[in-house]
Design a protein around this nucleic acid. Structure first.
Lengths: 146, 146
DNA sequence: TTAAACCGTCACATAAATGTGAATGTCAAG
DNA sequence: CTTGACATTCACATTTATGTGACGGTTTAA
């Protein structure tokens, strides 16, 4: 498929697909006229890239770990220096830290929402019996929620 | 404490602490001379902010969810419009998506590393008995791992 | 009193991801 | 052949999170 198709399937502006290529995240073959030509597998690939970018990984890091994320593994093995391995391990650890951080926030957010629902918005009959009661104390550590 | 202390404790440049304040993520009281004055709780707060930023959340979103992440909950409850709740739920869902995406990548990365270790780098006596064997097939979907 | 180590604001610079448009080439359909 | 949709490259603009420095005030200690 060409860039327009891939753009449509992945909801990614053409500009960005070219940018990802420029950053070495994807590779395109060219038709005789110079048009980029993509494999169907690029749809998932691009969605994965976008997910990782959205999760805060820079293209530089994504470029490093992408080759390890292909479905049919048992490829790309054998070209691994100790430094490569160390780098990948470091990135994996960093990803783990991100996950932990996000999970903590998600859990706190969930608790907060549960408390809110328990306190005043029980329009949803699934509300948990969380004994939440409000006070007027304001921490002043943070601004008001929007 | 003043900004220098907070900067030292959190490993965050002064410049960024002022920036976070400018973005409404933190609030400082001012001493008579105009110096910013911080509570000790700001250390954890700033670390949390940095973690979320590093995980890809923009300051705009962090500002929204931060008030819900305070330890002593049961504060800030009662000022929640339905739109606020909907926004928070949406952000929670987005955070969840990020977590899923990162977890997938981490797992794939872990598998890859396990396979690598099984294939050639068993310097570590803890290596798992993963029956990994390499082939020369290259996907061409992605560049070589660095 | 002077120097060093803080603090303040202001402002310019940068890298990454992205938006947007110009100028042009290609191709399929009328 | 022309038009419209799609492609190309080039290039400038923008936003966000930062770095960095100028210039000046304050506090502390020699």
């Amino acid at each position: 498929m060409r860039i327009g198709q891939l753009s449509e399937y992945t909801g990614t502006p053409r500009r960005l697909l070219r940018y990802y290529e420029e950053q070495g995240l994807i590779i395109s073959s060219r038709a005789a006229n110079g048009y980029r030509e993509y494999d169907e597998r690029y749809v998932d690939r691009v969605l994965q890239i976008r997910g990782l970018l959205d999760a805060g990984l820079p293209t530089r890091v994504i470029k490093q770990i992408l080759p390890c994320l292909s479905k049919p593994r048992t490829i790309h093995i054998s070209d691994a220096t100790p430094e490569t391995i160390a780098t990948l391990e470091r990135e994996r650890d960093r990803i783990n830290e991100r996950i932990q951080c996000l999970a903590r926030s998600r859990d706190a957010l969930t608790d907060y929402l549960d408390a809110l629902r328990g306190a005043q918005g029980p329009d949803d009959p699934q509300a948990d019996p969380v004994s939440a009661f409000s006070s007027g104390v304001v921490s002043s550590l943070t601004p008001e929620p929007a």
